[in-house]
Design a protein around this nucleic acid. Structure first.
Length: 270
DNA sequence: CTAAGGACCTGTCGGC
DNA sequence: TGCCGACAGGTCCTTA
């Protein structure tokens, strides 16, 4: 999936085409995503005007007067603007048609994504326990240090926990840990305050740089304009197991940490 | 409370 | 060429 940079890239790509537009129809070809698309979603959004397109964690939020449409891209989801009524492929599950003659189309082969509804004034349960935004003021090394005391889970799993900090997935967790010189399998509670300050800084830096490059495209991610992201060429360790470490030249090691593929440099990361 | 494993679903790739 | 297992950007849910 899309981690935070890909979701943010999607947001900036689609927002100009959605802001101020009226929804003319909702077309759901496959409601069985991570959770079923609410059967009455069309009634909530039809003829309503989209007033904002925002992001919280890896969720996109389309604000209409009575509430917000929540969209999560899961592992393989992407959003594009297409001409309304254009031919749909087998994984084009949802079209949100607009009065501009275009439609926001959700494509998601693995169907781990979600399209949900959050009435105004309520907080959807999925958003209720999210941690701070990594690019916001509440995220810093001292926070990570305090939150990690007594935790024996690997530090990589810790920073990928959306209750700790949102938006960091498997790619950027690996990259930030490399940049901060921390072994991904080290217990979160056994990383000191100075190293957490470095890690918080590297997380923010790598996310910002990836956003500037339009995110990372491994196979199927495209931004709202249909173009891939270009951060892949800047990845230091992710997907590079066995290849030379960009810092010391030693072979990068590929392991599994918390069921997820993980690459690190045994020489540079402690 | 934390941690670990399974579950969801489709596509792709490498090995035999 | 064909089949089979492993793996893929997420994260909730159950179990211990």
């Amino acid at each position: 999936m899309p981690e935070l940079p890909e979701v943010e890239t999607t947001r900036t790509g689609i927002a100009p085409h959605l802001n101020g537009r009226r929804v003319t129809a909702l077309r759901v070809r496959q409601p069985q995503l991570r959770w079923p698309v609410p059967a009455d979603l069309g009634r909530w959004v039809r003829q309503r005007e989209i007033s904002a397109v925002s992001r919280r964690a890896k969720y996109l939020l389309l604000t209409l007067p009575p509430g917000q449409v929540l969209i999560h891209l899961g592992m393989s989801g992407s959003l594009r603007l297409v001409p309304a009524g254009s031919a749909a492929g087998p994984h084009d599950h949802v079209d949100l048609e607009l009065d501009s003659g275009r439609a926001l189309r959700l494509t998601d082969p693995r169907r781990f994504g979600a399209v949900l509804w959050q009435p105004a004034g309520t907080v959807h349960p999925l958003l209720a326990r999210l941690g701070p935004e990594p690019l916001g003021p509440d995220f810093h090394g001292d926070y990570l240090y305090a939150a990690s005391r007594g935790r024996s889970a690997p530090v990589k799993a810790f920073i990928m926990d959306q209750r700790v900090v949102v938006g960091v997935g498997n790619i950027y967790a690996s990259e930030a840990l490399f940049l901060a010189g921390i072994r991904p399998d080290r217990a979160a509670g056994r990383v000191g305050p100075d190293r957490y300050r470095a890690l918080a800084g590297e997380i923010a830096t790598v996310l910002r740089q990836a956003i500037a490059q339009g995110g990372t495209t491994l196979r199927d991610f495209v931004g709202g304009d249909g173009r891939p992201g270009y951060f892949r060429q800047a990845l230091r360790v992710y997907g590079r197991g066995g290849l030379p470490c960009p810092r010391c030249g030693g072979a990068l090691r590929s392991v599994r940490v918390g069921q997820r593929g993980t690459v690190y440099c045994p020489g540079c990361q402690r």
